[in-house]
Amino acid sequence: MKNTKERSARRDVMKTLADARPDELDPVLLAGSRRQREDLARITAEAREGTAGPHPLAWLRPRLLPLGAVATVAASAIVVVSLVQQQSDGTASARADTRSPSASATAVNGRMELLGVAKAAGSPAAEGTYWQVTTQTVNVDVVGDKGRRYTLRSTAGGEWSVGVRPGTESLMLSGLDARTEPRTTADKKAWAAAGSPRQVEGPASADGRMRLGYTVGSGTPTVMHTNADDKIYALGPKNVSYQELRQLPTDADKLSAELERLYAQEGGAETSAGRTAWMLRHTADLITMPVEPATRAAAYRVLAELPGIGVQPSATDSLGRKGMAVTLPVDSATVLGGVEQRLVVNPSTGALLSEETVLTAPSAIAREAGLTAGTTVNYEATTRMGWSEQQITVPKNAKY
């Protein structure tokens, strides 16, 4: 049975955030923006997760969902709801477990590797006032009409500073040094042949009937206040405080049970593919939150027991950093095709290096635009994560 009291408290927080939304975050003004595209990805993913399993684009949602963004997501749904249509064939499923004995041995070795990472992640660490994460994000999108498709590459930096002490605030900066431009030389030629437009559109559905807008050029950073009183993170379907984070289980079995409970509360699909994708995403969240080191270690142990995941002991992230990759293949009829979700971690420290979406089975739209299997179509690389006593500096040109 759902905890109606908890749900009610959550709705009160949502209403407070919605009432406090500044004009700059009005959904009408967000039409066609990158924020709206990210919201669309989240909304379509949520719709699919409740029925046929997770949409691969669920991996594109912010790893740590800021509380202040919830009202924006809900409001943006009003704008894009007329564009979103459920595709009957847009299901996701884990690949069948037809592993050979050698493959099974590889899986066991991979789990052992993850347990080694868990040990490194459990090293004690000091606490501070602000838990800060700095990221670099890249997205690849297909634009243009059939017969004239090409790709855009959008880059942006981000900083999230979460205040954990009484009286502190949490700030999220997104769109730092943001820029959208044709991805390759061939794409630049195709864009020039189209008249070098600043405003372009691309398909948002496999049949090309739904479309999204993009702006070529530089963007303006945005700052958001992401705390609501003492609630600083969204964990599954609920908002949590720093104290609640520090009280999460440090035992892998108990942490897995807690995540299962949250998964059920969020209405997760009763399939192994939906559960695995959800657990992978939320354990990745925990790895980058200011939880107890032992909880972070337990999150890696939970990862090690998830069905369907793979482990690459030697991997390189999109910034060229060496690490180990945890992978989950996802087959689905999306705009770009089937993808593989990847977490690249530093095995020596247990720190998350990057979250990536790699194209494995390009769709016709993706192939026409020149995308091939193995192309990383989205990544969010973590370049810094740790404690600080100083709040981040907000650029003068940032929009609230």
Rank of each mutant, 00 (worst) to 15 (best):
Ala107Met: 14
Thr215Lys: 15
Leu29Val: 09
Met324Pro: 02
Leu30Ala: 15
Glu266Leu: 05
Pro329Lys: 03
Val28Met: 14
Leu262Tyr: 02
Ala228Asp: 15
Leu280Ala: 01
Ala298Phe: 13
Ala94Met: 14
Lys189Ser: 14
Asp317Leu: 00
Pro293Lys: 09
Asp145Thr: 07
Glu159Ala: 01
Ala103Leu: 14
Leu371Asn: 02
Ala269Phe: 12
Ala234Lys: 13
Asn239Pro: 07
Ser33Phe: 11
Thr135Phe: 00
Ala299Trp: 05
Thr220Asp: 05
Arg149Val: 03
Thr155Pro: 00
Met279Lys: 08
Ala94Gly: 15
Leu248Gln: 03
Val326Arg: 01
Ala398Arg: 00
Lys188His: 13
Tyr214Ile: 14
Ala299Tyr: 08
Thr151Ser: 15
Ala284Leu: 12
Leu353Gln: 02
Gly147Cys: 10
Lys189Leu: 13
Gly175Lys: 01
Ser348Ala: 15
Ser318Tyr: 00
Lys146Ala: 10
Val200Cys: 07
Ala103Arg: 12
Thr134Met: 07
Ala333Val: 09
Pro290Arg: 14
Asp317Ile: 00
Arg179Gln: 09
Leu64Met: 04
Thr295Cys: 10
Ala69Thr: 03
Ala299Leu: 07
Arg367Trp: 05
Arg111Tyr: 08
Thr226Gly: 09
Ser332Thr: 15
Ser82Ile: 10
Thr98Leu: 15
His55Gln: 15
Leu60Tyr: 00
Pro22Asn: 07
Asp141Gln: 15
Val339Lys: 06
Leu319Trp: 02
Ala107Glu: 12
Asp12Ala: 13
Gly147Asn: 12
Glu38Trp: 02
Arg10Pro: 05
Glu38Thr: 05
Thr327Tyr: 04
Gly337Asp: 14
Lys119Met: 07
Arg367Gly: 11
Ala325Asp: 11
Ala284Trp: 01
Thr316His: 07
Arg95Ile: 11
Ala315Trp: 02
Leu29Thr: 13
Val344Cys: 01
Thr360Gly: 05
Leu83His: 12
Asp317Val: 00
Ala71Cys: 06
Thr220Lys: 13
Ser8Val: 07
Ala186Trp: 05
Asp19Gln: 15
Val80Ile: 08
Ile43Glu: 05
Val81Met: 14
Asp141Thr: 11
Pro124Ser: 10
Asn239Phe: 10
Leu173Ser: 03
